[in-house]
Amino acid sequence: MIARLLHGVPRHALLLLAGLLAILVAAPIFADDYLVTVLILILYFAYTGQAWNILMGFAGQLSLGHALFVGLGAYTSAALYVHFGIGPWIGMPVAILISVACGAIIGFLAFRFGVGGVYFAILTIAFCEFTRIGFDHFDWVAGSSGLFLPVANYTRNDLINLRGQPVMFYYVILALTVAAFVMCHALLRSRVGYYWQAIREDEAAARSLGISTFRYKMIAIVISSGMTAPAGVFYAFYYNNLFPEQTFFILRSIEIILGPIIGGVGTLFGPVIGAFLLTGLSEALQELLTAYGLDTPGAKRVFYGVCLLVVVMVLPNGIWPPIARLLRLDRRETPET
C-alpha cells in the first residue's frame, strides 16, 4: 500500500515533504500561542481547500457553496454533543453521513439534468443560502440566536471530547490535513482520478471513452462533501459557537476556495500553498492595520479580493505550477516551439 503510494514520486519531492512535515510537527515547540492559532487557521483552510479541490480541481465542477458541508458537519456534531452528550468522534461519522446525503442530493439534481458550469455554481449557492435561512428558523439548534458548546478553563487536554488547548487542536487539524493530502494523492493516481480529470478537461470526449460522467461526478461530490464535514466538526469544537448567519455565509464558501485558486486549482500542493500564503499574509496585514489603528471590518476582505484579482489575472493557473516546474516536480512537459 505505502510502496504503491510512493511509487513514481521523485525522491527530492519526498524529502521536501518530509522536511515540511517535520517542521509542522515540531512547530508548537517553538511557536507561541498566537502563532499556533494562525497555523491552525492555515491548516484548516488547507484541509477544506483540499476537499473542495476534489470537486472543482479534479472533476471540474465549480462549487460556491462548500460552507454548506462545513456547516452541516459543525451543526450535526455540535447538536449531538449539546443535546445527547455524544462526543465529536462519534458525531463525525454522523456528520459525514448527513453531509454526503446532502451533497448526493445536489449532485443528483444537477448532474442528472445536465446542470453544469455556472448553473451548477449558482445551484450550490442556492442550497447553501436555503440552508442558512432554514437554520435561522430551526429551533432545535437554537436558530438565529446561535448554538453554543459548553466551555470551561481546561487544565488538561481531553482528546475524546475535543476539549482543551490550542496545541491539541493544532495536532488534530494537522493530522486531518496530512490524511487529506495523502488521500488526494491516492485518488489522483487511481482510475477515479484519471476519469475526473478527463471529465474536467472535456466531458464529451470523456464519454466517448466509455466513462459514465454522471457516475464519476457523483463520486466526486460525495467524496468532496464527506471530506468537508470533518472540517465542520473541528470548527464547532474549536470555536464553540455556531450562527447560521456566519456558518453558511456565502463569504465562508469563497474563503474556502481562495486558497486552492491562488495556489493552483487541481494540484495537490495548491490548496496547501494557497492557505499558507493567504492566511499568512492576511494575518500579517491584520497586525499591521491594528498597529496603525486602521482596523476596519472590511479591510481584510478587500485584501482577499485584491489577491484573488491579481492571481486570476497574472497567474491563471495559480502559484504552484511555476514553482513545480522550478523544482522539477512537473511530469508534463510543454515542448519549446
Binding site: 460556491l64 463569504l251 469563497i254 476596519t296 471590518p297 472590511g298 479591510a299 476582505r301 478587500v302 482577499y304 479580493g305 485584491v306 484573488l308 484579482l309 486570476v312 489575472m313
Partner: peptide
C-alpha cells in the same frame, strides 16, 4: 474575476 470584483466592492463599501 467577477467574484474578486464583488468582494472588493462589498468590503470597500463596508469600510
Amino acid at each position: 474575476l467577477m467574484v474578486a470584483v464583488a468582494i472588493i466592492l462589498v468590503n470597500g463599501l463596508l469600510i
